[in-house]
Amino acid sequence: MATRYTGLCIGVTGLNANDNPGPGIAVIRALKAGLGDDIRIVGFAYESLEPGIYMQGLVDKTYQLPYPTAGTGALLERLTYINNQEKLTAIIPNFDAELHNFIIIAPSLLKIGIRTFLPSLAQLQVRDKANLFEFGNKNGLPVPPHYKLFSAADLPHVTEELGFPLVIKGKFYDAYIAVNMDSALKAFKQLEAAWGYPVIAQKYIKGTEINVAALGSGNGSNLSIVPMRKLYITEKGKAWAGVTIEDNALVELADQFAKATQWRGAYELEIIRDAEDQLFIIEINPRFPAWIYLAAAAGQNQPAALIKMSMGENVTPFNSYETGKLFIRHSWDQVVDIAEFQKMSAFGEL
């Protein structure tokens, strides 16, 4: 049965459903659940082995995008080409590293009919790892102390201040827990080589890991907030299983964040609750988390709501979700012919 969403064509990045998964596949599942199976999904990939490329039931067609390092000019050019083939309704970017560029070109995308629902550059920057501590202090949000590292020579006094263990984080991705000077140095060197400066050293907080997926309206409120407690954590620190929980303190934290930033679009709060029941925000991701389908399954379909917002619909804020909904991630061996990989690699389309 056709609905008002039939035939919408939505572009989604983050098809890397691997052991450090991007949110793309979860976003697509939620979109199909919320808007109907008859929408068209165009995947955007950076690598030819992102599993989502080969998931034909979920992704109708995939195009390769230029890396963020190529800049906004190359991205807009590529998306204009893709739009000429696909007539995109909207795009949901799901990588931290690509958001800067998508935010810059959002007005140009709108001119060719492609909608987005993204934070501003200033909003993106305040929650950046490098600025998070100052941001938290200014707005009364609990953030563990951190230092910015520009050289290995900064490590000794920083480790003295923060003590071991401490968390060493890359500018965009990756984090290591360093237990001594050697491991701190090793982590620093890896992260500076991969992501540049600054490298962040953050005080390690021991406790329960909780994530909150939320959707900011852009005028200081949230349209949806779903907290999830991680039950099983991979070596890379990713949730492999988690359960929706109810805790007003978490909801208040998200509301405080939305109020302080006027956040527009998806975000995720990474929170630790320590032994004294104190909450600490250790990171704020400016996009949907990879577990976002759980939020939809628990009653708050944030990706579908985001698309509706981008289309100018009036979306009523969600006010309830089911607690005790559990997700258990699993791996699945997709089998395709080498020719598909070759085509994607060489032509950047499949």
Binding site: E47, P66, T69, A70, F95, A346
Partner: peptide, 12 residues
Amino acid sequence: LTPGAMNKFGSH
């Protein structure tokens, strides 16, 4: 044709 992690050296 190599699969590779997203890194800071772009391919384009």
